[in-house]
Amino acid sequence: MPDVSVRLARPADRPTLERLWLMFRHDMSAYSGVLPRPDGTFRSERLDSALTDPGWAPYLVTSGEHPVGLAFVRGLTSPTRVLSSFFVVRAARRAGIGLRAVREVMAAHPGSWEVAFQEDNTGAVRFWRRVATDIAGEAWTEERRPVPGRPDAPPDAWISFEVPAVPRSSLHRPGSAA
């Protein structure tokens, strides 16, 4: 597996996260039907919240010196954490980077978790079911929920599971085997 690092994003990482965000929203537009705004950007409220709201945590995923993904967690002060956004660039997919990044992010915030995805996104369906099984065994659930404010959109699939607390010494370090 490539040298992968997952760390909390710093204010100086904002330009990198903004670029990754555009790639993420572009990928998601295939399932949401949302077009870019006239200036070529997409709505970025989640990006802004991840970087400024104390109930959120933004993560940057790198492989060597290359930014390869992001993960935004919300609900840090709630009983259930939500992986609000998760993205790995196409060139880094299917190399174990996504699963490793999710494990590290979730291990940093043990407890109840939820992840939403679109049923039409077959890659996401396979990935998130694999993540849930990898982390929680068979102790996970999946349900359909309407998309808030989008009655025209098909419901999202939501997976829920528990992430056990892991001793800090057991967490993977950059460059270590997964």
Rank of each mutant, 00 (worst) to 15 (best):
57 A>D: 00
88 V>L: 08
178 A>N: 04
172 H>S: 15
125 V>C: 12
148 P>E: 09
67 P>E: 06
62 T>G: 04
66 H>D: 13
142 E>L: 13
138 E>Q: 12
174 P>N: 11
7 R>S: 03
174 P>F: 07
33 G>I: 01
61 V>Q: 03
52 T>P: 04
119 E>R: 13
146 P>T: 07
84 S>G: 13
168 R>D: 15
48 D>W: 09
6 V>I: 09
65 E>K: 15
104 E>R: 15
45 E>W: 10
162 E>R: 15
149 G>Y: 00
36 P>W: 03
90 R>K: 14
113 W>T: 03
88 V>N: 14
41 T>F: 00
108 A>V: 08
158 W>S: 00
13 D>W: 04
27 D>S: 13
96 G>M: 06
4 V>K: 01
141 T>K: 01
115 V>H: 05
38 P>R: 01
135 I>N: 10
172 H>C: 15
137 G>H: 09
174 P>W: 02
90 R>Y: 05
7 R>K: 08
74 R>L: 03
32 S>V: 00
124 A>P: 09
17 L>K: 04
42 F>P: 04
123 G>I: 05
147 V>Q: 08
51 L>T: 08
35 L>P: 00
147 V>L: 05
22 L>M: 13
93 R>M: 10
26 H>Q: 13
135 I>H: 13
78 S>W: 06
178 A>I: 05
69 G>M: 02
149 G>N: 10
13 D>M: 03
118 Q>T: 13
17 L>H: 00
24 F>T: 04
90 R>P: 06
154 P>E: 10
78 S>C: 10
117 F>T: 07
176 S>Y: 00
18 E>P: 01
124 A>F: 00
122 T>V: 13
153 A>S: 07
102 V>G: 02
58 P>I: 02
162 E>K: 11
28 M>H: 10
109 H>Q: 14
74 R>P: 00
144 R>N: 11
96 G>Y: 01
55 G>W: 03
149 G>C: 08
111 G>N: 09
56 W>V: 02
136 A>P: 09
11 P>Y: 01
70 L>M: 14
128 W>I: 00
14 R>W: 12
125 V>T: 11
98 G>A: 12
122 T>H: 14
104 E>F: 02
62 T>W: 02
130 R>V: 13
168 R>I: 15
109 H>E: 12
131 V>E: 03
24 F>C: 14
45 E>D: 14
163 V>E: 07
38 P>N: 04
12 A>L: 06
100 R>C: 10
87 F>H: 14
55 G>E: 11
112 S>K: 14
39 D>E: 08
